[in-house]
Design a protein around this nucleic acid. Structure first.
Lengths: 215, 215
DNA sequence: AAATTTCTGTTGTTATAACAACAAAAGGAG
DNA sequence: CTCCTTTTGTTGTTATAACAACAGAAATTT
């Protein structure tokens, strides 16, 4: 992952980024598939940037209902909200969906101390706001995708979004079946069932994670 | 509504706020109950601050499923995300839950033009980030409250949050039954039904919008 | 105060999603 | 290649949420 392709560092030059990494105590860590990176209920000063692999952001209620809020692919940042609100316990758990390496940094520092020690702080703060706003949109979309009461409605809402995002009716879903079910808050087997009905009805064709949305 | 009590203006003095309002083309407007303030799909440069009344933030899919994402009481800001991402069409509709007055302002301006023309811009930008982060948490919570597959689970998740927020097991719900059902994505009558069962089971007592959560 | 509208609670029916259990396929490890 | 694990698809049963329809209460209007 090239650091200059990261949303958070948008508009910054390589050497400026290097200098920032020092400011923010950047530190790289690796995780095996399935490992928990940040736990619901804990606090953190650090946000993470996914360098490689993939992380899932999920929450689990006291009855054991697991819900996926979203994922973060290489280049994406997570836990930036908690960097902006010091002391706020995490409402979510972040875990590695596959072997993953993360760059942690104390992003919140740009909001408090030495706001002019580094000349690029202002730009970083603006980027952080943009990232935060986009996260907001992602959450709104996830809410929209679960607003239908039927499994089919939820799948169609999500697939339509995917198609729009990929600019094609043919796309790859970044979740396996269980994860997709947890994202849409439905039962996996009911969802598998509905997928095959939708294929019979000619709405979609699929082969594992590859979906083709018809007309 | 006293402007110095508004989150967005946190840490600013009265006269500084007055000066800012000029910078950001602030403009006050009033809406009758039920009126649409901002429409899904449109774009806006303006964010709104609720001065009095209440607004609902909702979305409606192509099949007519209406979902409430949240509300904004006096002092709260809405559409700040769209101020941070110029040109992004609204994913939601904002409407007046009762007679409401709104202060609109071009908040996004602090991110682009004249970032030093006004000495309070930096503070405002920081506040905006905080507000945005809090919105994020609200959306995460709304997702959590709909993660249970049962109506009862959703109600309990929401009520627990209310009790925590009010610091008491006795609290007022800011939604009527239909709105609460739309917030939790369940059928209203099924929800009413479940409420009375929960009362029979001794989990809650209620009288209209006043809820008492037992033990 | 009367009339109208909106909101809330109730009931019964029906559709459907959850659940459990299993078989088949795919992927990895030795 | 074979064994083992994980993932996906399928089926049947059951619980439950959606839906429709209505009555009573509350709020609003005139």
């Amino acid at each position: 992952m090239n650091l200059s392709n990261i949303q958070l560092f948008n508009g910054l030059k390589e050497d400026e980024i290097t200098s920032l990494l020092g400011c923010l105590n950047a530190e790289k860590r690796s995780y095996k598939k399935g490992e928990v990176i940040l736990s619901e209920g804990s606090t953190t000063e650090n946000s993470g940037i996914v360098l490689s692999g993939m992380v899932m952001i999920s929450c689990c209620d006291i009855w054991g209902n697991n819900s996926i809020l979203g994922n973060a692919a290489p280049g994406s940042i997570f836990a930036e909200v908690y960097a902006c609100i010091p002391g706020q316990p995490l409402l979510v758990t972040v875990s590695a969906a596959e072997d993953t390496s993360i760059l942690f940094m104390n992003v919140g520092r740009i909001l408090t101390t030495c706001s002019n020690a580094c000349p690029f702080h202002a730009r970083l703060a603006r980027n952080l706001l943009t990232v935060c706003a986009h996260k907001n949109l992602q959450l709104s979309q996830r809410i929209q995708h679960t607003s239908s009461k039927s499994v089919r409605g939820r799948l169609m809402s999500y697939f339509s979004e995917c198609a729009k995002h990929f600019g094609s009716n043919s796309f790859l879903v970044p979740y396996n079946r269980q994860q997709l079910a947890d994202y849409l808050n439905v039962d996996r087997s009911a969802m598998c069932n509905e997928l095959s009905k939708m294929q019979k009805d000619g709405m979609i064709e699929y082969e594992r994670n590859h979906i083709l949305l018809k007309d």
